[in-house]
């Protein structure tokens, strides 16, 4: 009896130690987020405070400005916010129908083996590093845009353009969107489908009217994730965006500038205000992502309710 209670006691201590160990790890990882956000905030807000060592920047003209030039120290990100929204939403618009139809094919129509093979191809696509997409885009997509523009008689900056960014982002968010949609479609209750078929609906009618309607919440979640990737993508985008000095850019064949490409270009070589202001741009990007995620989540809640 005595030996047994000793063992129980020891085991309890071990449990306790491990509980604190796990808690420590959790606190550590959570504190990283706090440290990062705090660091970005402090750095990003400092240029707008009085007494800033490189000369205070006016917050209002920063947020609404339509020129971003380091040589004259004119920093306005208003047009860059619009550019970023245009790029990301148009990319989503382009990618959404393709990926929904693809996922419908993989989950419902394709033979089992073919579907599984295609799904792993799409998962592979998701794991390709963004710089590889960037090289592909600056070599292939820009060439396509260039020849398209030439056939329309429009001059481009060697194919670097808003259109190239949109096509690139559409390709990059496609795997995220598709795999989320596949999961959502596969989760649709079989009984729903059978009921629809029993009522005399054709397979196509069932797929569009029943399956997609039932899966729309999950598909929408995929769209939100995809949009997040489109907003945050930096490396590949700055390889084809062209970094225009003013804006906003509405012309598909004109060069553009996104929040991420602005932060990345020349980061390694710069210092002073031009360095600190990139944190402010980062803050703006965080706010833009939060805001659009919140709006889309509201939309998702609404459409998710009315099945």
């Amino acid at each position: 009896m005595f030996a047994n209670s000793k063992r129980i006691k020891r085991n309890k201590t071990i449990d306790k130690v491990f509980r604190y160990l796990f808690m420590g790890m959790a606190v550590l990882s959570a504190s990283f987020i706090i440290i990062i956000v705090a660091f970005v905030c402090i750095k990003g807000i400092s240029p707008f405070l009085p007494g800033y060592e490189f000369g205070q920047v006016d917050l209002w003209s920063f947020l609404t400005g339509s020129v971003y030039r380091q040589d004259t120290a004119t920093y306005g990100v208003g047009f860059i916010i619009i550019n970023t929204l245009i790029c990301s939403f148009l990319a989503l618009l382009l990618s959404f129908p393709i990926s929904v139809l693809t996922s419908l094919f993989i989950a419902k129509i394709a033979p089992k083996k073919l579907g599984a093979a295609m799904q792993s191809v799409i998962e592979l696509l998701a794991s390709v590093p963004s710089v590889v997409y960037g090289i592909f885009a600056s070599g292939v997509i820009t060439a396509m845009v260039r020849s398209l523009a030439a056939s329309l008689g429009i001059a481009t900056f060697g194919g670097s353009s808003l259109l190239a960014v949109i096509i690139l982002l559409a390709i990059m968010i496609f795997p995220t969107l598709t795999s989320m949609s596949i999961t959502a479609i596969k989760a649709v209750d079989k009984d729903l489908e059978s009921a629809s078929l029993a009522l005399g609906a054709t397979k196509t009618q069932t797929n569009f009217k029943v399956v997609l309607t039932a899966a729309k919440s999950g598909i929408f979640a995929g769209a939100i994730l995809g949009l997040g990737r489109a907003f945050g993508e930096a490396t590949a985008v700055s390889m084809v965006a062209g970094n225009k000095l003013f804006g906003p850019t509405f012309d598909l064949f004109d060069i553009t500038r996104t929040l991420t490409s602005t932060m990345l270009t020349g980061l390694k070589e710069t210092s002073g205000l031009d360095y600190d202001i990139r944190f402010s741009v980062g803050l703006v990007l965080i706010v833009v992502i939060f805001a659009s995620n919140w709006i889309l989540n509201q939309v998702k809640k609404r459409i998710g309710n009315q099945v």
């Binding site: 020129v67 060439a143 481009t156 060697g158 390889m239 062209g242 970094n243 000095l245 060069i255």
Partner: peptide
């Protein structure tokens, strides 16, 4: 500030050569 604002900004020497070579 005299540089034309129609200019496109590139990120490195290599990037410059690649982009001009395609245009």
């Amino acid at each position: 500030g005299e540089l034309t604002s129609a200019a496109s900004e590139v990120s490195s020497n290599g990037d410059m050569a690649t982009r001009v070579g395609q245009d």
